[in-house]
């Protein structure tokens, strides 16, 4: 089984968090899984990690529609942060709007991090593919 040290799940929907966690644990050995109800909480934690020089997440699952700070606002802040490590960011949203897909594509071109767009429901096969990418 693939080992992943640190994973962020940023979503205000408890069922989605439950689902992602359940699949993740079935396909990989995850050391730390952090949950955040909105982008603000996640970005605060990352900033703290940078200051403390602790290990940043390898993989981020990111919802778009969230209160306080949504997924896009999170991405905007995130890509500005001084992170040399390549972080795998997976957008997981119920939106199938082309506009949102294009926006994700745009973010991908602006950063060295990987930005991938996934529509809900997220299935085991999707997570397997994502985790496989991490170990490379």
């Amino acid at each position: 089984m693939i080992k992943i040290n640190s994973i962020f799940i940023v979503d205000d929907d408890t069922i989605t968090i439950y689902g992602i966690k359940k699949i993740l644990t079935s396909v990989a050995i995850c050391k730390d899984i952090f949950e955040f109800k909105n982008g603000q909480m996640a970005i605060n934690r990352i900033k703290k990690m940078i200051i403390e020089k602790s290990e940043l997440p390898d993989l981020i699952f990111l919802d778009i529609n969230m209160p306080i700070m949504d997924g896009w606002e999170f991405l905007e802040e995130f890509i500005k942060l001084p992170i040399t490590k390549k972080v795998n960011i997976n957008i997981v949203t119920s939106s199938i709007d082309q506009f949102d897909m294009d926006k994700a594509e745009n973010f991908s071109s602006l950063t060295h991090h990987t930005v991938v767009y996934n529509s809900k429901p997220i299935r085991k096969a999707d997570i397997e593919k994502i985790t496989a990418g991490i170990s490379d």
Binding site: D13, I15, T16, G19, S94, S95, I96, K120, P121, R123
Partner: peptide
């Protein structure tokens, strides 16, 4: 509606 149905499908 999609977000609800996605949850149903997953669960």
């Amino acid at each position: 509606l999609r977000s609800h149905s996605a949850n149903f499908a997953m669960l």
